[in-house]
Design a protein around this nucleic acid. Structure first.
Ligand code: MN
Ligand code: MN
Ligand code: ZN
Ligand code: ZN
Lengths: 138, 138
DNA sequence: CATTTTGTTGTAATGATTATATTAATGTAA
DNA sequence: TTACATTAATATAATCATTACAACAAAATG
């Protein structure tokens, strides 16, 4: 994924005013590539910013998604996760250790039938199974 | 998708006791290939079965998913949809008309990197964009 | 038949998300 | 600078989907 050295500048260049909270939330997403939930972000950042509210996290993430600097990872139907890596990539979730792995796939050679003449804007590929670690250990 | 002529038999052969409610819910899913939400099923069937409760629909769908005769379609993060077609296929959602289309794709030639040695059990491919109809009309 | 198991339902609880209203911070025109 | 307007952050309350639980009904068992 893209290397971002200056978060306030990155936000500004995407038409987002870089408030303290917004910078911290983006920083968390960028540093931790763990596809966190709102709850995880809240748990972590409320230690640093005691006044931070979940509403602000929801507002901020909604804004980030609208401005295309964050994507929603919807691999599980009961939890919404977020990802600062907006490049096209897939997500694998291990049903044993619950870890989410990124992977790359070839969109060019993806053979799709029945969608001739359709405009394809966004493609999400989710795979579930058991990761290499868990296959060996368990 | 598979042609099912005898729903009670199909349920029985999948280790599900074919109660009236279960048969009606499966029948709805099988006849309407519209990937309905619980709400849609409830609206439709409560006209036929006035005593039907949403809890029963939730229970029934959870059972169907467990027994692998129904899959969850999770293309939108704020609504869970259900599909009686359990064969491997992808889902396209038109952002204009909101319609969900099925499509086929070639899993064999799907080039995936970074997942060597991972056991892949379930693959979900979601595409969003604008359908052919909406491209022409609008 | 009596007893146990399974299925259905209504109500209440939970938990994630959103709406609303208030307050704080920032920007800008005199 | 002050005064006013805009944007951001917050707390609280509301909503909505889903689940838990308990009561009741149906069916299976023997
Ligand atoms: Mn990712
Ligand atoms: Mn389908
Ligand atoms: Zn694992
Ligand atoms: Zn359309």
């Amino acid at each position: 994924m893209k290397n971002i050295t200056n978060i306030p500048y990155y936000l500004k260049s995407n038409d987002i005013k870089p408030s303290f909270q917004r910078m911290k939330i983006f920083d968390y997403l960028y540093k931790n590539k763990n596809h966190p939930t709102v709850e995880m972000i809240y748990k972590e950042l409320s230690g640093i910013i005691p006044t931070l509210s979940k509403t602000t996290i929801y507002n901020t993430l909604k804004l980030f998604v609208k401005k295309n600097i964050v994507i929603i990872v919807n691999i599980e139907d009961n939890e919404t996760r977020y990802d600062a890596d907006v490049s096209t990539h897939g997500h694998f979730k291990c049903i044993k250790c619950k870890e989410i792995y990124d992977f790359l796939f070839d969109t060019e050679n993806l053979k799709i039938q029945n969608l001739k003449g359709f405009q394809k804007d966004k493609i999400d590929l989710y795979i579930k199974g058991i990761c290499k670690e868990c296959l060996f250990s368990g």
